[in-house]
Design a protein around this nucleic acid. Structure first.
Lengths: 123, 123
DNA sequence: TCCTCGTATAGACAAACGTCAATACGTCCA
DNA sequence: TGGACGTATTGACGTTTGTCTATACGAGGA
């Protein structure tokens, strides 16, 4: 069921409660923590940067195993976490799976962390 | 020894390797993941936002236990994680401990997540 | 249709994590 | 100096996480 990941993305971009903008309710905190948890592993951070660094912004799953030096199932497991968190999208083409960074999610997280605008506060 | 947390802060602001700016080396990924791990728990996200929401930007440890509804040792444990990650600074004044959000660390993380500047959206 | 190959899932296991009760540490005040 | 009080540490516990091997799923080609 892919609805879980989709909900997370929508919730993130919809609410965007900034951490430093006031006391967060439990729900917002859980939503944010869920995304941070997906980023809380060095391997997943590297996988994300590997995908972003690929020209075209798209990386085949087959090219992700070697760089991180882990077994194929382990990489598949990590990719699932990234997809579920809405940080990465998956596109199956034939036998191959292609991953792409979801910029809007990264933006939402960045805004949640640092809502201050360069120059003046919009709020 | 407080050097561990200090090193992390310095490293973060010093290097700031953006996730989407090219393949990260293992060390940078670990550094980033360590900070994300500190944010990967709903309680710690709430604690962080509670501190940020306090007027003066400073919160007493004694005022943090009730809102999150956890035992004092547990809150103390979470605060240590936030301090070690460089997300929060601790100031002991008399019997009380005061915490304050370290903006530079939040900025560094936000920049690592979303290095693109406001001016030009390529997309 | 069967085989090959890329990917995902299942199951197992050690390590890390979040939480608590109990206790230790430090600072203030009488 | 001794007690009270705020905070940190210790030790224990069940749960979650990261990794592996083994296996299942699914698409393409002979």
């Amino acid at each position: 069921m892919p609805s879980a990941s989709l909900n997370l993305i929508e919730d993130l971009s919809a609410c965007c409660s900034p951490i430093t903008g006031g006391a967060l309710d439990v729900e917002s905190a859980e939503r944010l923590a869920r995304v941070f948890k997906a980023l809380a592993d060095p391997t997943r951070v590297r996988l994300l940067s590997l995908i972003a660094a690929t020209e075209g912004g798209e990386a085949c799953a087959c090219d992700l195993t070697a760089p991180v030096n882990l077994s194929q199932p382990t990489v598949s497991h990590h990719m699932r976490q990234l997809v579920d968190a809405g940080l990465v999208s998956r596109d199956q083409r034939g036998k191959w799976a292609y991953y792409r960074v979801v910029d809007s999610t990264l933006d939402a997280i960045a805004n949640a962390i640092k809502p201050e605008r360069l120059g003046q506060q919009t709020r």
